[in-house]
Nucleic acid binder design. Structure first.
Length: 546
RNA sequence: GGCCCGUUGGUCAAGCGGUUAAGACACCGGCCUCUCACGCCGGUAACACCAGUUCGAUUCUGGUACGGGUCACCA
């Protein structure tokens, strides 16, 4: 068969050669050991944790090695494409602090290895498609969807592997005349790779999993779809070669199509990148109690937007993913509280290969510590940023009282063992609400031990003797004196031992004070809070109880 | 069903032939204390199963079970 002629019939417009492509996209001149990585999201408008998870690995190993990290949009499936999805991906990655050195940007491309949108690379793929046809490694296939369905049914019934291969590859040996005829009649066709029937095994050294073995590809899989756009498999091989990726980081669901990719790299005579197949993120299914893959429909926490809405800071997400990704991260963080997480030496070999469960409790804990490490000014800024987007009323409040807010954020944080009250920005709005009259409300009941008479007496006398300039010790001495005067135990233990001799203990008294001041039985130090609020507010809030 | 991947406490995980089988989160006690938090001390809790190799297996090999993935002109 004259494959050269067949190639010309199929791709009459392709004049460039593979060598031209190699010249157009030369090897990158990078320092020894530099990694070139990428993420290749498809623009479906939904960015999930798994995307970020893989992005983070790529970003780390690229930037840690002085390499390049880029964004490639895998838009070969026009059916799934959603308007504005590219923007969504870029914004999400930007929000979470993942920066690209090159690749697609919202209004075009940035870099010398583009275009970075696969649909715009059609001509490039066709050069290699034609080349494969010329060498007899690819052929046009005119099978319709119905024919393929019927074949699959027949194969399944006969307990054979479904698919187009060997004797089932109907159009493998179609003559040029027949092809020409079919083409002329306007019949749709796809370009298929010509698989070899073999019982060979291939072996790939995965950077995360080690040696992975599987049967060599024998399928006539699709290279170009009927619209001339490549499938993922073909696009991946061409792109990662031409864009000079050194490492391909992707989910383990790709493991099963690895044999096709190996086949193509070999057929084209290219060196394979280093594959890194990551574990799938899982969660516990509430209904069955079993582990399962996170699902877009059932699990809101899969969407990155969930974390934005909850107000979990990007740093917390990073730390969370880093602890899942590298088992020694927590240890490193424990030993070094100050360093940026980017200083952590990330390693592919330390990665877990079984699916990790997304544990929101753990995330909250990490978030609490991350915020705990931030200076109050940083918290103010980031929290305000979040409020501007998700809680406009609160943003207004914070802006109205900037000094008070920063002071409030510092309550209990100057001590040797600082408080960690804030978990998320959303929770912060709730927690901090008592610092502002606009949002202040009494949420807890006054302790039952304090009857109305002693309550009135307490607040009256407390206010009468209140000196805003008292230091903590002087203030507390006054509270103690009042406590005793009202017939309450100054030492909680005394009350515990002899509950009959007292109306209650100082715990009840201070709780009463705390509720009047903050609305909650649980709140930070009363003396500190009083000073953040200022004398006027303190007096006003307490006066209501006299 | 074929092919692949996986399996250490509730969760995340160290471990890489001999360990009292780390640590973190969660949970439960206790201490500290004006509440809550923080912090500290302590506790409950694990090598899926069965063979084999070995003086000795959580660690190596095989099988079973269970979980996951994939078998598209989707990525």
């Amino acid at each position: 068969m004259d494959y050269i002629r067949l190639a010309d019939i199929l791709f009459p417009d392709v004049t460039a050669s593979p060598e031209d492509m190699e010249k157009m996209f030369p090897e990158r001149s990078l320092p020894e050991g530099a990694c070139v990585t990428r993420i290749g999201p498809s623009p479906t408008g939904f960015v999930h944790l798994g995307n970020l998870y893989n992005a983070l690995i790529g970003e780390r190993i690229a930037h840690q090695s002085g390499g390049v990290f880029y964004l490639r949009i895998e838009d070969t499936d026009n059916k799934r494409e959603v308007e504005g999805a590219v923007e969504t991906v870029i914004n999400a990655m930007n929000y979470f602090g993942v920066h690209f050195d090159e690749g697609a940007v919202s209004d075009g491309d940035n870099g010398n290895y583009g275009p970075y949108r696969q649909r715009q690379r059609k001509d490039i793929y066709h050069v290699f498609a034609k080349h494969l046809v010329q060498r007899g490694l690819a052929y046009p296939c005119f099978l319709t969807a119905e024919e393929i369905d019927a074949l699959r049914e027949q194969q399944t019934a006969a307990k054979e592997n479904p698919g187009i291969y060997g004797k089932y590859a109907k159009y493998r040996e179609t003559s040029i005349e027949e092809v020409q005829q079919l083409l002329d009649s306007g019949k749709e066709w796809v370009l298929r790779y010509r698989g070899t029937e073999t019982d060979e095994y291939i072996s790939v050294n995965d950077a995360i999993r080690g040696k992975v073995e599987m049967p060599r590809n024998n399928m006539d899989f699709v290279l170009l779809k009927s619209d001339g756009i490549p499938t993922y498999h073909f696009a991946h091989v061409v792109d990662d070669h031409l864009m000079r990726s050194t490492h391909v980081i992707r989910g383990e669901e790709w493991l099963s199509s690895l044999s096709m990719h190996v086949e193509l790299f070999n057929a084209l005579g290219w060196q394979q990148p280093i594959y890194c197949h990551t574990a799938t993120l899982m969660k516990i299914d509430e209904e069955t109690g079993g582990k399962r893959k996170l699902s877009k429909r059932k699990d809101p926490e899969l969407a990155l937007s969930y974390y934005q809405q909850e107000g979990i800071s990007p740093d917390a997400i990073w730390e969370f993913l880093l602890t899942i990704l590298n088992s020694n991260y927590e240890e490193w963080r424990l030993a070094d509280q100050e360093s940026d997480y980017r200083d952590f030496p990330y390693s592919l070999s330390k990665m877990s290969i079984s699916g990790a469960l997304v544990d929101l409790d753990k995330l909250r804990d990490i978030s609490k510590n991350v915020i705990g490490r931030m200076p109050a000014e940083t918290i103010y800024k980031e929290w305000l940023n979040w409020c501007d987007e998700y809680s406009k009323d609160f943003a207004e409040l914070i802006r109205k009282y900037p000094e008070r807010t920063v002071a409030a954020l510092n309550v209990g944080r100057m001590a040797a063992k600082p408080r960690k009250d804030l978990e998320t920005w959303k929770q912060a709005c709730d927690f901090m609400s008592f610092y502002y009259d606009e949002t202040f409300k009494i949420s807890d009941e006054m302790p039952a031990e304090c009857d109305e008479a002693s309550r009135k007496q307490f607040f009256a006398e407390y206010l009468a003797s209140y000196d805003h300039s008292d230091d903590s010790a002087a203030w507390f001495d006054k509270v103690k004196a009042l406590t005793e005067k009202l017939g309450f135990a100054v030492k909680p233990k005394d009350f515990k031992k002899n509950p009959d001799q007292f109306k209650g203990s100082i715990v009840h008294i201070t709780n009463m004070l705390r509720i009047a001041l903050t609305g909650h039985a649980n709140a930070p130090d009363i003396h500190e809070v009083s000073h953040v609020l200022g004398e006027d507010i303190v007096r006003a809030r307490l006066a209501k109880w006299c």
